[in-house]
């Protein structure tokens, strides 16, 4: 009986071994994006925009054209690219410090203009690369190096829910939040990534998929503890699912 390969590395990924920490879910998210680029046949038209943060080196792992933006500026960068070459498939890959803190103006305005690119937003509730500082998404009471007594919401406010914030804009968009801490969640997440890139490929709208991700190193947990922490702490504060689709009837006000 002839053997058939049923699982392999996507063509959109390189063979480079990632620098990510054990238990970090960047690798899973990279793979989901790569699988969708393969399955939709987009790799040869794809240009990725890397952020500043742990995933700044994403371009070592994706087998497509890639650029490295300044911190937080990826949505402006992608706007320039897409407006110049609408035939290309553009995606930004950004962490929570990059997107929700230093780059919040750029993401809000790109979404509001309905820029036809896709944002992969990786929310792990902490700054990873700089060594575990408080992020706009750090949970109430969460201990980080700059909130050593736990995030005090009376002093620094509540964690920002970017899916909810961007979904409040009237401009049509596809905006969803997913997680990758269990196989079931990974399957659901892939569906959202497929939709996001499909909408872009059809020239429909801006699309963002927010991923709840782990950071065992800076959370001070084992990989298994970290996945449990996503389920117990992040999912209740950051509800999963689609919040906005371009099919929705727009308010006629």
């Amino acid at each position: 009986m002839a053997c058939k390969i049923i699982f392999d590395r996507p063509e959109s990924m390189t063979e480079t071994i990632t620098h990510y920490c054990p238990g970090c879910t960047h690798g899973v998210i990279h793979r989901l994006v790569a699988e969708i680029l393969d399955e939709l046949g987009l790799r040869e038209r794809a240009v990725g925009v890397a952020p500043v943060g742990c995933s700044v080196l994403a371009y070592n792992y994706f087998n497509c054209d890639f650029l490295e933006a300044a911190h937080g500026r990826a949505p402006a960068f992608a706007t320039g690219l897409k407006r110049t070459r609408p035939d290309l498939i553009i995606f930004t890959y950004q962490g929570d410090g990059d997107l929700a803190s230093i780059g919040i103006a750029e993401i809000i305005h790109a979404a509001n203009r309905g820029e036809k690119f896709t944002t992969i937003f990786v929310n792990n509730a902490i700054y990873g690369m700089t060594g575990g500082q408080m992020a706009p998404t750090t949970l109430p009471g969460q201990v980080t190096t700059t909130s050593p007594f736990g995030r005090d919401v009376a002093n620094v406010g509540y964690p920002m829910r970017m899916r909810e914030l961007l979904s409040a804009l009237r401009t049509p968009a596809y905006i969803a939040r997913v997680a990758v801490h269990t196989p079931r969640h990974i399957i659901e997440a892939k569906k959202a990534v497929r939709k996001a890139f499909t909408y872009q490929n059809e020239g429909r709208c801006f699309s963002m998929v927010e991923f709840l991700s782990t950071c065992p190193t800076n959370w001070g947990m084992t990989p298994v503890e970290a996945t449990q922490w996503v389920q117990d702490n992040m999912v209740p504060y950051f509800p999963l699912g689609e919040l906005k689709t371009p099919e929705e009837e727009q308010d006629a006000d």
């Binding site: 240009v47 933006a69 500026r73 402006a76 706007t79 320039g80 690219l81 407006r83 110049t84 070459r85």
Partner: peptide, 13 residues
């Protein structure tokens, strides 16, 4: 800030 980074992205084409 955004305008100049749009230039950055556009120039890459």
């Amino acid at each position: 800030v955004a305008a100049s980074n749009m230039i950055f992205g556009a120039a890459s084409t």
